[in-house]
Measured scan of single mutants.
Amino acid sequence: TTVEVQGVEYRFDNPEEAEKFAKKMAKSLNLRVELHGNKWRVE
């Protein structure tokens, strides 16, 4: 599972970890998070 934060990609073996990371990043950067296939995008 991939998390893309403002163009930078982070890879996770565990989808739940990816989701937690994406939501945490979105909250700290005041952005929103969307799931596209198996990629979380924070923008």
Rank of each mutant, 00 (worst) to 15 (best):
R11L: 13
R41F: 14
T2S: 10
K27T: 14
E34N: 09
P15Y: 07
L29I: 03
A18H: 00
E17M: 08
E4T: 11
D13T: 11
V3I: 02
L35H: 11
E43F: 15
R41I: 15
Y10I: 05
G37C: 15
G37R: 04
K27V: 15
E9F: 08
R11K: 14
K24A: 15
D13V: 09
E43M: 13
E19W: 08
A26Q: 03
H36I: 14
K27M: 14
R41P: 02
E19I: 06
G7T: 03
A18S: 02
N14G: 06
G7F: 04
R11F: 14
R41V: 15
V3Y: 01
K20Q: 11
Q6H: 09
F12S: 00
K27Q: 15
V33C: 15
K24M: 14
P15V: 06
T2W: 15
L29G: 04
N30M: 05
E19A: 08
Q6I: 09
K23N: 09
D13S: 10
E34K: 10
K27Y: 13
E4M: 11
K27W: 12
L35Q: 09
N30R: 06
A18Q: 00
L31P: 01
Y10W: 08
V5S: 03
F21L: 02
N30S: 06
K27D: 15
R41E: 07
K24E: 15
E43Q: 10
V33E: 05
Q6V: 10
E9A: 07
K23E: 08
R32V: 12
F21T: 01
G37E: 11
N38H: 08
R11I: 13
N14Q: 08
G37N: 10
E16I: 11
L31F: 07
A22R: 01
K20P: 02
R32C: 11
N30H: 09
E9Y: 06
P15T: 07
K39G: 11
T1M: 13
P15W: 08
R41L: 14
S28R: 14
F12C: 08
F12V: 01
E34Y: 14
K23F: 12
F12K: 01
V33I: 11
K20T: 12
E9V: 13
L31N: 03
F21S: 01
T2M: 12
E34T: 14
V42N: 02
A22K: 01
E4W: 11
H36P: 01
V42E: 04
Q6P: 01
E16K: 11
L35M: 08
E34H: 12
S28I: 15
T2Y: 14
A26D: 01
K39E: 06
N14M: 07
N30E: 06
N38L: 06
F12I: 01
V42G: 03
L35S: 05
F21V: 02
V8E: 06
Y10E: 01
E17S: 09
T1G: 08
E19N: 03
V3G: 00
K27A: 15
N30W: 03
T2F: 14
A18P: 00
M25A: 08
L35T: 04
K39L: 11
T2H: 07
F12E: 00
K39P: 01
E17N: 06
G37S: 05
L31R: 05
K20H: 11
Y10Q: 02
S28Y: 13
K24D: 15
N30Y: 05
E17A: 10
K23G: 04
G7K: 04
E17R: 06
V3T: 01
E43Y: 15
S28L: 15
A26S: 04
N14A: 08
L31D: 03
N38M: 06
F12D: 00
V5Y: 08
Q6W: 10
R41G: 04
A22E: 01
V5E: 01
E17Y: 05
S28V: 14
E16C: 10
P15N: 07
E19T: 04
E19C: 09
K20M: 11
E17Q: 09
V8D: 04
M25H: 03
A18L: 01
V33A: 15
W40Y: 07
E19G: 04
T1L: 10
E34Q: 12
W40M: 03
H36W: 10
K27F: 13
E4H: 09
D13K: 09
W40N: 02
E17T: 09
F21M: 02
N38I: 05
H36M: 10
L35W: 13
R32Q: 12
L31E: 03
L29Q: 05
H36N: 10
W40F: 07
V33G: 03
E17I: 08
E9T: 13
E34R: 10
F12M: 02
Q6K: 09
D13N: 10
E9C: 15
Y10F: 11
E34M: 10
S28T: 14
L29V: 02
V5M: 06
D13M: 10
E43R: 08
T1V: 10
N30T: 03
W40T: 02
Y10P: 00
W40I: 05
E4Q: 10
S28E: 15
T1W: 15
Y10S: 02
R32M: 12
V8L: 09
G7A: 03
F21A: 02
G7P: 00
R32I: 10
K27H: 15
E9Q: 08
F12L: 02
H36V: 15
V33D: 02
W40R: 01
E43A: 11
H36E: 11
E17F: 05
G7C: 13
G7Y: 03
A26T: 01
V8I: 13
N14F: 09
L31V: 07
L29H: 06
D13R: 07
P15D: 07
M25Q: 06
N30C: 14
K24T: 13
E9M: 11
V3M: 01
L35F: 14
V33F: 13
R41M: 14
K39I: 15
L31Q: 05
S28W: 14
K20R: 12
L29N: 05
T1A: 11
A26W: 02
E9L: 13
Y10L: 04
M25Y: 04
F12T: 00
S28M: 15
V3Q: 00
N38T: 09
N30P: 01
L29S: 03
A18K: 00
E4K: 05
A22Y: 01
E9S: 10
N14P: 01
R41Q: 10
E19D: 03
Q6M: 13
K23V: 10
N38P: 05
S28Q: 15
D13G: 08
H36A: 08
G37F: 05
N30D: 08
A18V: 01
T2K: 06
Y10C: 08
R32F: 08
N14W: 07
H36D: 12
A18T: 00
E16G: 10
G7M: 04
Y10A: 02
L35A: 05
R32Y: 09
N38E: 08
E43P: 05
L31W: 05
K20N: 10
Q6F: 13
D13L: 08
W40L: 05
A22G: 02
A26M: 03
K23M: 10
L29C: 14
L29T: 03
R32D: 07
E34S: 13
N14L: 10
N30I: 03
E43C: 14
R11T: 12
S28N: 12
V8S: 05
R32K: 13
T2L: 14
W40G: 02
E17P: 02
Y10M: 03
A18N: 00
G37P: 03
S28A: 15
E16Q: 11
V42Y: 03
M25I: 14
M25V: 13
E4I: 14
K27I: 14
K23W: 11
K23D: 06
E34D: 06
E19M: 06
N38C: 13
T1Q: 10
A18G: 05
R32N: 11
E16H: 12
V8Y: 08
T2N: 05
L29Y: 05
A22S: 02
V8T: 09
W40D: 02
Q6S: 08
G37T: 03
K39F: 07
L29A: 04
T1P: 12
V8G: 03
Y10G: 00
E34A: 10
N14V: 09
V42L: 10
E43K: 07
D13Q: 10
Q6E: 11
L29D: 04
V33K: 02
A22C: 05
G7Q: 03
R32P: 11
V33N: 02
A26V: 02
K23Q: 09
A18W: 01
W40A: 02
E4Y: 13
V8C: 13
H36Q: 11
E19S: 05
W40K: 02
E17K: 07
K23A: 06
D13W: 08
M25C: 15
V3W: 01
H36K: 10
H36R: 12
K20D: 12
F21K: 00
Q6G: 08
L35I: 07
K39H: 09
T1E: 05
Q6D: 08
A26G: 12
P15S: 09
V3A: 03
N30Q: 07
K24P: 00
D13A: 09
V33W: 07
K24C: 15
P15E: 09
K23P: 00
N14I: 09
A22W: 02
M25S: 05
G37I: 04
N38Q: 08
V8H: 09
N30L: 04
K20C: 15
L29M: 07
